[in-house]
C-alpha cells in the first residue's frame, strides 16, 4: 500500500500543482476581464473633453471602440451594465455629434472645429455661432 502511495505521490503532486496553476490563471483571467473593459472604457470616455480637437478619423475610431465596448459591457451583471452602458452611450453620442456637426457645416464658424485650427474664434457672433446664414434661435422664437 505504501509502495503504491509512494509511486502515486509525485503524480498527485504534479496534478495538484497543475490544478493550482490553472485555477490561479482562471482567477486572474476573471479579475482581468472586468479590468480590461474598464480600462478601455475610461480610455475612450476620457476623450470627450477633447472631442473638438480630434480628427474625424479619430472620432470615427472612438465610435467604433464604443460599439465594441458596448458588447463587452452588455455581458456584465445588471447594475454594471445599466450604469456603464448609459455612460458609454452618452460618450458615443458626443463623438457622433461632433462628427455630424462637422459634416453638416464644414465651412464657417457654425460647426465645431478643432480648437487648434480656429484659435481666433474667441468671440463668435450669433450668426457665426448659428452658422453662416442661420439665426441662433429658430425663427419666431421670442427670446432670450
Amino acid at each position: 500500500m505504501k509502495g503504491i502511495l509512494a509511486r502515486a505521490l509525485p503524480a498527485l503532486r504534479a496534478t495538484w500543482l497543475l490544478l493550482a496553476i490553472l485555477s490561479c490563471g482562471g482567477a486572474r483571467a476573471e479579475q482581468q476581464g472586468p479590468a480590461d473593459w474598464r480600462i478601455e472604457f475610461e480610455a475612450v470616455c476620457v476623450k470627450t473633453d477633447l472631442a473638438m480637437t480630434l480628427s474625424s478619423e479619430e472620432l470615427g475610431d472612438l465610435v467604433a471602440r464604443c460599439d465594441r465596448l458596448a458588447e463587452r459591457i452588455g455581458a456584465e451583471e445588471e447594475i454594471v451594465r445599466k450604469v456603464f452602458l448609459k455612460r458609454l452611450q452618452s460618450c458615443r453620442a458626443l463623438f457622433v455629434f461632433v462628427l455630424e456637426s462637422r459634416r453638416a457645416a464644414p465651412v464657417g464658424g457654425g460647426a465645431p472645429a478643432p480648437a487648434q485650427q480656429s484659435p481666433s474664434a474667441t468671440q463668435q457672433h450669433g450668426s457665426d455661432a448659428a452658422g453662416p446664414q442661420g439665426p441662433p434661435a429658430p425663427e419666431g422664437s421670442p427670446a432670450p
Binding site: 476620457v46 478643432p114 468671440q123 463668435q124 434661435a137 432670450p144
Partner: peptide
C-alpha cells in the same frame, strides 16, 4: 476618468436676441 487635459474649446458665443 482623468480628463485628458485642458478642454481645447473656450470660445465665447454671442447669442443674438430676437426681441
Amino acid at each position: 476618468i482623468d480628463p485628458s487635459g485642458e478642454i481645447g474649446f473656450s470660445s465665447t458665443i454671442l447669442l443674438e436676441t430676437v426681441w
